[in-house]
Design a binder for these strands. Structure first.
Lengths: 227, 227
DNA sequence: CAAGAAAAAACGGACATCCGTCTTTTTTCT
DNA sequence: AGAAAAAAGACGGATGTCCGTTTTTTCTTG
């Protein structure tokens, strides 16, 4: 699987994502026409992610968001009840999509070696397709209120659990060496995250997403496969 | 080398660090008595790092800092000209220490394999000894003004260059496989950073700093050493 | 050593500005 | 025309910074 194949495979239209947000937040969204809501949610989220790739969410004012999205401050407050809820809304939706796509993809693998490759590729490709979203989710997690922060941590551990399970399975089937599983999963995750956290670096060096994914797989397999 | 040995080896007293800050910023510090400056710089930096481990630098108000440090708002402004300069001050000093300690340690290695181990251990041990400092430097880098941001990026690339050089040397001496050097250095760096970015995770799992360093070395050597 | 003067450092009120949010008014769409 | 949506404006509160004043420390002089 290459990145282009992945993109065709996984449909991640903005309309669909905003539709899901509407479903989950009907109560707090005051505008009734569904088409309007979806259009404006897209504008709001696009604007938020664009601004927050340059400065922090805290530093982004509602006035900034108004200017970037083209909606007035008053109008914005028809789509979320307060600024913090906007943060939570984007974060929780981001986590939801990531987990869903990841589990869907890995289910296609037949053995641990194939599953590990699929998991690595899916994660990197997904973070590439939703670059700004992933960056935002990671970098702004610490500004969430306590209970949402807890959910973010659970989500991080859940993703890691996927790798832990694959590696354990591989050890049981004697395809992988008997390494410290939790640590192996943790460092693989660290490598995956580097792709969207240090995007500027890889762009400058002209490292393609396929190059990067292949290299992470190489490192993981060098560490895990029976010699 | 273990973490405890490293800590004894590298003297990182707060007084020394604050003394260096004073040297580099004499112009903007209005207080004259050296002892006073050093004492209060320690209080200010400790307070800043403590607050910013819980919320962002932006979210920390000068009033917060005043309460935590025990200095009045007016007094604080005798040690920096504005809030942004305080951020720059801590960041640039953090980078300076990190680079100095790292290069000092690696110079002790005799061959690429030994140097690589030393570089990995030094980096992880240093980030452990200066945990809050490293976290702050990483997480708040994006809130720096443009020109300081550039310096932070240069510093990141400089650290990575250390690993690139070691790996290149290893390949030339036929101790390492002929891998993509830049990518190998990048993913090693990603693993190193995970130690201080996800400190809570490793603490919960009771992974010691020595455990972690050994595992990263294991991954790096599995990837690089000739089979 | 003591005591008063001078210098240094710390304090904290004041101010302009900006921000999130709420309310009221205007515009748009059916 | 009437309901829905957007825009505009107002408001209270918080923030960074300045600066006149007070407190602490250091120096000087007997």
């Amino acid at each position: 699987m290459t990145y282009n194949e992945f993109k065709k495979l996984v449909n991640l239209s903005k309309e669909e994502i905003s539709g899901q947000i509407l479903e989950r937040n009907r109560d707090s969204i005051k505008v009734k026409k569904e088409k309007k809501v979806i259009d404006n949610l897209i504008r709001i989220i696009d604007a938020t992610l664009a601004i927050c790739s340059k400065k922090s969410f805290q530093a982004m004012s509602i006035r900034d968001l108004s200017a970037e999205s083209g909606l007035s401050r008053g109008a914005l407050y028809s789509y979320f009840t307060n600024k913090e809820e906007l943060l939570i809304l984007i974060q929780s939706q981001g986590r939801e999509i990531a987990y869903r796509v990841l589990t869907e993809q890995i289910a296609k693998g037949n053995d641990p070696v194939e599953k590990l490759r699929l998991a690595i590729k899916s994660h990197i490709y997904l973070s590439e397709a939703m670059r700004t979203w992933f960056y935002f989710t990671y970098i702004e997690a610490r500004n969430l209120p306590k209970d949402e922060q807890k959910r973010a941590i659970e989500s991080e551990l859940l993703t890691e659990k996927i790798f832990i399970d694959i590696i354990n399975e591989g050890i049981k089937e004697e395809a992988f060496r008997d390494v410290n599983v939790a640590l192996a999963a943790a460092v693989i995750k660290a490598m995956l995250q580097d792709w969207y956290l240090k995007r500027w670096k890889y762009r400058n060096r002209k490292v393609s997403v396929d190059n990067y994914a292949d290299f992470v797989i190489y490192v993981a397999e060098s560490t895990l496969l029976i010699k």
